[in-house]
Design a binder for these strands. Structure first.
Length: 508
RNA sequence: GGUCCGUUCGUCUAGGGGUUAGGACGCAAGAUUCUCAUUCUUGUAACACGAGUUCGAUUCUCGUACGGACUACCA
């Protein structure tokens, strides 16, 4: 075994990947890249009942969108193929037999009913039934049944599982990179099923076998696996294999309320929990995605990286490469982190500001196209330049830019009451005459002229600008007005002034 | 219930035996501006509790409380 750093992200194709899963993938990726190692993608599809069509493709696409390039695994192949557990069945079968042969595992014939009965009985007694060291002697398995009867059952094809034989009373002291020492006593642990009656391995067996076969050096996974760490450690020992290092990541919690973030929270609280939009093939239920909501992948990743990890400095904006450079598992937090939709937006805002106007314009063009609006790229670029600072998403730019594409049909009532006075129409008419004579119709030229004009008339600029703005865009907010009219052009600007004079007179 | 893990501003977090306990999001105020936003400045607000160790504990130890995960022939 060499010293190469190799990590894997091993999701189950049971649906879309949610925030927690993406972050696990991210931390694995960052750790691998930090050490110049390999990032593998393995699909753990050993549960036939929970398989969701399209989920695997979704996972691959989501990682791609996030920029987490897979070095080896599903979708890209590699020396340890196949990387889909359903295609590696013989391997698990072989290893399960080995455990049976070495006495680390045994056959169990108990039916689901038997087990349920025992559990119910224990519960009625206020206890918890564990199929472990203290109870396995009372169950129907190859430890309790005479060998010939076991053989008879096996030959008859009786439904059976393979269980791990947990040591009776052993204190296990395990190391976790994030948490330090973690202790367990095997007396309290149960004889987990390693191989199911349907001929498939369970997570535990498949996971350990594959991690070993794929030469994984570090297992970085969610905290929900911490309690299975002793089982996995014992499995490595039973096989006589060197154990990889383990790191259990803290969970991502709901923004408000108790518990870990679930996919329900997103639709309920108005933020996506999935990187990409996802439609449940069974229920038809639709889930929002960060991509479709207008998040930039780098912003999304940056936000996720800082959920449970920090560099120890005050830097908070990181490219993926910077993240990889600075990442270390030692700086991952122990406690769960509440997810904050607000902060996610803030990150996107930051990244949006850095995005070239031409790129923003291209995105904006796409959005506008859906509304049947088309404009030339230079104009859209100018619009983006003006509007982006107040936007979190390109869609915000679209929403705020409507007056560039059509003249106002209504006028902001509050502003109208405040600034549209009886003398205003005449003022605006004068202003229109002034603007008519300005060529070229640039922001600088119109601003200079209007300021001069205001000074000459001894009228405060505010007196003019507010109704001017209202007349042109129908709103009381927005970017520099002279920039707006430059984009609109002289003709359109004058038309709008004229329209406003007529309509606002009537409305007043 | 049992096992394991955790607990610093509302949230994400830095720090670590002696600090004005730092930063960011959010919120509030001020400055700038034709407006809104941006930006800048300022403010707001935290070491869960109780013991112990110590000259001194938010920091170390132990308890308690609270939170979380696991407790399937799911991963």
């Amino acid at each position: 075994m060499n010293d190469r750093i190799r990590v894997r992200f091993a999701p189950s194709p049971t649906g879309a990947l949610h925030l927690g899963g993406v972050r696990t993938a991210l931390f694995n990726y960052l750790f691998a890249k930090h050490h110049g190692g390999d990032f593998l993608l393995r699909v753990e599809d050993t549960d036939q009942n929970r398989f969701v069509p399209g989920a695997e493709e979704y996972i691959v696409e989501a990682l791609k969108w996030c920029g987490l390039t897979v070095d080896e695994g599903v979708g890209v192949g590699g020396p340890h193929a196949p990387y889909r557990q359903s295609e590696r069945k013989e391997l698990y079968d072989h290893h399960a037999r080995e455990l049976l042969a070495t006495g680390h595992a045994y056959l169990a014939f108990d039916s689901a009913d038997d087990l349920n009965q025992r559990r119910a009985a224990a519960e009625a007694d206020g206890k918890t039934f564990t199929y472990g060291a203290d109870n396995r002697a009372t169950m129907k398995n190859s430890l309790t049944l005479p060998p010939d009867e076991v053989k008879k059952l096996v030959d008859a094809g009786a439904p059976r599982v393979i269980r791990f034989k947990m040591p009776e009373n052993e204190e296990l002291i395990l190391q976790d990179i994030i948490r330090g020492e973690v202790r367990f006593n095997t007396a309290l642990l149960d004889d987990k099923v390693l191989f199911k009656a349907d001929g498939m391995p369970t997570y535990h067996l498949a996971n350990v076998v594959d991690d070993h076969l794929m030469a994984i050096s570090h297992v970085i996974r969610g905290e929900e696996w911490l309690t299975s760490l002793p089982l996995h450690a014992l499995l490595y020992r039973a096989f006589g294999w060197e154990m990889p290092s383990f790191a259990h990541l803290p969970l991502i919690l709901k923004p408000v309320g108790n518990g870990k973030l679930s996919k329900r929270d997103g639709n309920k609280m108005g933020f996506p929990v999935f990187p990409l939009e996802f439609t449940d093939p069974d229920t038809g239920e639709k889930w929002r995605g960060y991509r479709e909501d207008g998040y930039l992948p780098d912003a999304f990743i940056n936000m996720l990286a800082l959920l449970g990890w920090n560099p120890g400095t005050e830097q908070e904006i990181f490219s993926l490469a910077e993240l990889a450079e600075q990442f270390s598992l030692e700086r991952v937090n122990k406690s769960g982190a509440r997810f904050s939709p607000d902060k996610a937006k803030w990150f996107n805002h930051k990244y949006l500001q850095e995005r070239p106007d031409a790129d923003l314009a291209a995105d904006l063009a796409l959005l506008l196209q859906r509304d049947g609006i088309q404009r030339d790229a230079p104009t859209l670029e100018k619009i983006c330049r003006l509007l982006k600072e107040r936007a979190n998403f390109v869609a915000d730019i679209r929403d705020a830019s409507q007056y560039f594409f059509r003249a106002p049909e209504t006028y902001d009532d509050k502003s109208r009451k405040k600034c549209w006075r009886p003398e205003t129409p005449a003022l605006i008419a004068d202003l229109a005459r002034l603007l008519e004579g300005i060529t070229p119709f640039t922001a600088a030229a119109t601003e200079t002229a209007v300021r001069q004009w205001a000074t000459d008339r001894e009228t405060g600029l505010g007196k003019i600008m507010n109704p001017f703005r209202l007349a042109v865009i129908g709103l009381a907010d927005g970017p520099h007005l002279f920039e707006i009219i430059e984009i609109l052009g002289k003709t359109e600007t004058l038309t709008r002034l004229d329209t406003a004079i007529n309509r606002l007179q009537v409305e007043n």
